[in-house]
């Protein structure tokens, strides 16, 4: 009579052999599913085993639990618990990477709140040397930008993530060229607000690239709907005039939009 151990051994071997065949069969389908669901590409981000198990058990509850985790993160944010907030911000986006909201606000916390917390923890703005403050600001700004870059893997068509990138580059890194480029990219995506195009020109102007700014606005102006206040066609024309004046553009070469 066959022993129980032998039965289990045979069954295990058969399961592995059968599973190998089925695994080979489903590989092309798995590649498609994986490509469609970036959440499954866990290898691209360091995910602790605990997070993976959480993800596995949640199944379709991801949205609900991610929202709950976000609320918990806010509690820790009020306590200025930097490591916990950072961990939960990552966890929330692992649990449910679909809402842009999580990416956007996590990046803002990293880029704007964390430097303040770190500087205050090190003695405050008055005591911490300016150079150290600048370094902390830059480190955190770059952390925020990395977060936004991860978010763009899931939301390549979202102008909000590029706008936030531009804002951080402008306000925290004071990198006008980079900000101009990010605003331009945001403007190229569907649904971008009109002010983004104006911000691109403004960054170029402040970076000393006035001719590029003028050329951009001249191309932009005819595309703006006059009836839409948000488009601010009049304001754009006024900027064009200012730049033409700054650049001493002769009247015959100045832009003359139809009345």
């Amino acid at each position: 009579m066959r022993s129980r151990a032998a039965t289990l051994l045979i069954a295990t071997g058969a399961l592995a052999a059968g599973g190998f065949t089925l695994q080979t069969w489903v590989t092309p389908a798995w590649a498609v599913v994986r490509a469609r669901q970036p959440a499954l590409r866990l290898d691209s981000r360091a995910v602790a085993a605990g997070q993976g198990v959480t993800l596995a058990l949640l199944g379709g509850f991801r949205a609900l639990v991610a929202d709950g985790t976000w609320i918990r993160m806010y509690t820790l944010w009020e306590q200025r618990d930097l490591p916990a907030v950072e961990t939960l911000a990552h966890l929330v986006t692992v649990l449910d990477p679909r809402p842009v909201y999580f990416w956007l606000n996590s990046a803002r916390i990293l880029a704007y709140d964390f430097p303040a917390w770190r500087i205050e923890a090190a003695g405050g703005y008055d005591d911490v040397p300016a150079e150290v403050q600048r370094r902390v600001r830059h480190e955190q700004a770059r952390a925020g930008l990395r977060f936004l870059a991860s978010g763009r893997e899931f939301h390549p068509q979202s102008p909000e993530l590029w706008i936030e990138q531009a804002n951080i580059e402008l306000n925290r890194l004071v990198d006008l060229d980079a900000a101009a480029e990010s605003y331009r990219r945001a403007w190229s995506l569907p649904g971008a607000p009109y002010y983004v195009a104006r911000m691109h020109a403004e960054c170029l102007r402040r970076a000393g690239r006035k001719a590029e700014a003028l050329a951009w606005l001249v191309r932009l102006h005819p595309t703006l709907p006059v009836a839409d206040d948000g488009a601010a066609a009049g304001l754009v024309l006024s900027r064009i005039r200012d730049l033409e004046k700054d650049l001493a553009v002769p009247p015959e070469r100045a832009d003359r939009p139809p009345p």
Binding site: G60, F61, A63, W70
Partner: peptide, 18 residues
């Protein structure tokens, strides 16, 4: 409690999660 997930998407998540 939803933070930005479209409402119908959120409802479906809860349903399939259950």
């Amino acid at each position: 409690f939803s933070f930005g997930a479209p409402e119908l998407r959120f409802l479906a998540d809860c349903g399939f999660g259950a």
